[in-house]
Amino acid sequence: MTQMPAKPIILIVDDSADNIQIMNGLLCDKYSIRAATSGAKALALASLDPIPDLILLDVMMPEMDGFQSCSRLKLNPVTRHIPIIFVTAKTDTLDERTGFELGAVDYISKPINPAILEARIQTHLKLASRTNLLEDLVQQRTLELESARQKIINKLGRAAEFRDNETGLHIIRMSQYSFLLAQQIGQPAYWCQLLLNAAPMHDIGKIGIPDAILLKPGKLTLEEYQIIQKHPEIGAEIIGEDDDPLLHMAKEIALYHHERWDGTGYPCKLSQKQIPLCARIATIADVFDALTTSRPYKAAWSIDDAFNYLRDGAGSQFDPFLVSAFLECKAEITDICTQFAEPTSEHSTVVEVELTD
């Protein structure tokens, strides 16, 4: 049996039971009616699921009048998008303007003309339906664009990583460690998500380093090491200046993730909180993953040994507060290590980058 579509829900708000009865009689055949005799009751009924499709709201009511009720409804995220039509005996132009300024979609004077009331209701229900459809389409498109942007960022990070780590799992683990640490220190959820998505770009500057240096099987000369040290600036130049929060954070991480807490890092010799928080977090995540991952030139360190290295470097290489917070996350860190472990086969082309004495 075909189910009949649900009737649109209309909430009638009027302190006069007689007025409610009149409007109910006019509308009940086509609409599902809710009724409230006060502003307070209207606020409660408007929040019930499913929320009304439209509200007919009187202005002159005791305690909380229609204007106050409308203002409260528009402040509530649940009810702010419900179309409100004022139905009132207040016919002054100033009152009508006030109603529209508060967010109402229409203003109908009493006594009610049934034909006008029905026409206005149908018009605004159709407009609301189209608006909701448009908002859904815009939201869908926004999500698609955000997804595409993130894929591009991940692929760029992967492109840099591919040159010295065939699996690309380093950027995944490093991003997860960064996200975990940001959460641990109480950063807002939005900021944590930005960090998770920006961290893969930390070594994008490696694209600009010649293979002869990046993949050199042995120690680097002083000149070669100085070229390696240019990759943060190259990365910042690749990302460029942008007002987008994600790209702005990605640039900060790319440029500053080799700075040290004591000011002896590169390329800018920043120290302590001169270094952006996102970069200080990324530094710990990057070093920890490098230590706990096997390379052709070394075996993977244990988590405990890597923790000891971070602990010893707190206050010199690393932000001591962040190190302490990171060490408190051992169980979660172990899970990330396990979930995104490197393949057992050894095909990596990474080589050690050392400075010749």
Rank of each mutant, 00 (worst) to 15 (best):
E118K: 11
I207C: 00
K206E: 07
C192Q: 14
R163S: 02
K90W: 01
N76Q: 14
R260M: 14
P276S: 02
Q317P: 00
L73C: 04
E135W: 03
L246P: 11
A341E: 13
K230E: 11
H258E: 13
D244S: 03
L310T: 10
A42H: 01
H231M: 06
S38F: 04
D65G: 02
T349D: 11
A282T: 12
F307T: 05
E63Q: 04
S345N: 12
A36K: 01
A325N: 12
S271A: 15
Q193W: 08
L277V: 14
L48V: 10
Q183V: 04
S147Y: 10
T142W: 07
K155E: 14
N165I: 02
A212P: 01
K251S: 13
Y309P: 03
E96N: 01
Y177T: 02
P210I: 00
S71R: 13
T264E: 14
A306N: 09
H202S: 08
P62G: 09
L291P: 03
Q274Y: 04
P320V: 04
F67K: 03
R295T: 08
Q150D: 15
D243T: 07
R311G: 00
T93G: 04
T167V: 02
M4C: 11
D357K: 09
A148L: 06
A182I: 01
D65S: 06
Q176A: 13
I152P: 02
V78A: 15
G99Q: 01
L222W: 10
P83T: 11
I10M: 01
A6E: 15
G66E: 01
L195P: 04
C329Y: 02
N19G: 00
L75S: 13
P52M: 10
K155Y: 04
L27D: 02
I239V: 10
H258I: 07
I84A: 10
D305I: 05
L196W: 05
D304T: 14
A299Q: 13
C278T: 09
I209H: 02
D164A: 00
H258R: 15
L196Y: 11
P5Q: 05
R72H: 13
L125M: 06
K90Y: 03
I84L: 11
I227D: 05
M23S: 03
A198T: 05
H248D: 14
R72D: 13
L291S: 02
L117H: 11
Q183G: 14
K110A: 02
I55Y: 03
P320S: 12
M174I: 03
A306G: 11
E63D: 12
N165L: 00
I51V: 15
I22Y: 11
K230F: 00
A290T: 09
I55T: 05
D95P: 00
A341T: 10
P343R: 09
L134H: 08
D106R: 00
A300V: 07
T356Q: 14
D289L: 09
V87F: 02
D335L: 04
I84D: 05
I284S: 06
T98K: 14
R163I: 01
F100M: 12
S271K: 15
Q229C: 15
V287G: 01
D304W: 00
K74M: 08
